[in-house]
């Protein structure tokens, strides 16, 4: 425990952010009200950003807040508001057993990882400190060139997909679908079918 003997400011930062993160994380999973969960998650993300700073990962810390807290979670909160999801009623959960499963599983997982962590000791941090914008950028446009380009495909796809799904179906669309379904399933449609169709 000589680690505690030489306690530093960075330890305090770590402990502060870590405890904040854990409390907020529990808040995420134990709250009934989605918006509280969301706020809990935002706090987790911000404290993780703080932890990234203690790891000298400045760029990632900033991005963590901009992307996660500033974009993703806004989307979550936005959807909660849009759908106006209020507190869940205390309904009988069909899968109650999962809850009883959760605690032992939780402990088991923690136990395994902690046991593994015991083996790693306290390795010295590398003298090479990556984390500035320059470091990240250099890696991004050399070694990670291909993944970086691939993310553009990912984002494009996500835009197409989410636009498609979230678009409201107009009454016109619904009508059209119904007509098409009926036509496709009507025996009479066989006669009307165009020449490219053959009978099975």
């Amino acid at each position: 425990m000589e680690q505690f003997a030489q306690i530093q400011v960075s330890h305090l930062f770590f402990l502060a952010f870590a405890s904040l993160a854990v409390v907020a994380a529990f808040n995420v999973i134990l709250q009934r009200n989605p918006i509280y969960s969301a706020i809990g998650l935002i706090v987790v993300m911000c404290s993780l950003a703080g932890l990234f700073l203690t790891l000298s990962a400045e760029f990632i810390a900033a991005i963590q807040i901009i992307v996660y807290a500033g974009a993703i979670m806004v989307l979550f909160v936005f959807v909660i508001m849009l759908l106006n999801i209020r507190e869940e009623d205390a309904k009988a959960d069909r899968q109650k057993y999962l809850k009883f499963l959760a605690v032992p599983l939780f402990l088991a997982l923690i136990g395994v990882v902690m046991a593994a962590l015991k083996t790693i000791g306290n390795p010295a941090a590398s003298s090479n400190v990556p984390g500035t914008v320059e470091n990240v950028a250099e890696g991004m446009f050399t070694n990670y060139l291909l993944p970086f380009e691939a993310t553009s495909v990912l984002i494009l796809m996500a835009i197409v997909g989410s636009m498609f799904l979230a678009r409201r179906e107009s009454a016109e669309d619904t009508n059209e679908i119904e007509t098409a379904l009926n036509a496709a399933n009507q025996p009479t449609a066989v006669e009307e079918s165009s020449e490219e169709e053959v009978h099975a």
């Binding site: 495909v153 990912l154 498609f164 007509t179 098409a180 379904l181």
Partner: peptide, 19 residues
């Protein structure tokens, strides 16, 4: 048969294939 928009579907197939 189901009057679903074709553009996105084919685009999605292609994106999925690329992935």
């Amino acid at each position: 048969d189901e009057a679903l928009p074709p553009g996105e579907f084919f685009a999605l197939i292609l994106f999925a294939t690329a992935g």
